[in-house]
Amino acid sequence: MKKISILCLAAAVSLIASGAQAHFMVMYTPEIALNDSSDIDLRMVFTHPAEAGHTMDMDGIKEFYAVYQKGDGEPKKIDLKDTVKEIVWTNPESSDIAYSALIPKRTFRSMGDYVVVLVPGYHFEEEEGVYMQQIAKLAINVGGMPGNWAEPVGLPCEIVPLIKPYALWTGNVFKARVLSEGKPVPGAEVEVEHMNHPPDLGTNSMPAEGTVEYPHDAFVTQTIFADENGYITFGVPKEGWWGFAALGVGPDKEHEGKELSQDAVIWVKALDMK
């Protein structure tokens, strides 16, 4: 009897806890500040990275490409859809279809910025009866020569950084602007999560053990708001990966007759000064 009540309690707690989790389109490769060009092994998983939580179906990949720029040169679009493969991603308590991409060394050969863009399909959130589409960006630099990291790609919605997203120190302030159809979104609601369970590319999974213990549910997903000009600021408290998701900022509000939340996601990586 005692066992059952503990189980019930655990179930209830996990239910409550799941309410605090945020859906995040994870785009991950171990290194984004590269000295030399190398093969880039990337994963795209729709999950809850702060808790290695529920893994969800992203309904395929509509677009996957990079916008490359060296210095003040002309930006160039590089289609990467050919590099994508379907995989199964496994987190401690769930698994679902996700995608890997192996971008050959020669593709990202020149110095400069490669802003990698993922436009996924529409995830249907059954409990709420709404669709979600998180358009994600990840900037990779080769050789230290900057390019278009601070330029909008021109997505329906996106987060445009004002500090090099691939060269953050722990403790830096991440500043960025939330755009919808190129225009700032005043007061945009942005969720922030730490990649607390570092992805394992060998096994396509996140470990059960996290690097941080949360003292309270409110710390799992942090919420910040953009100011009246669409700017967000966030002090990065720990090394590693940080994801930002601006909720419902995209212009599309409906998909197949149901409500759609079209979100903008960006991933940044901070290193300790040592």
């Binding site: 210095g71 080769v142 390019g147």
Partner: peptide, 21 residues
């Protein structure tokens, strides 16, 4: 930054950390 083209030639790129070509 320099890399070997694998065809007997070498390719180098140069610039400045502020993006100046």
């Amino acid at each position: 930054k320099c890399s070997d083209n694998g065809d007997g030639t070498v390719f180098c790129e140069g610039g400045y950390s502020d993006g100046t070509p």
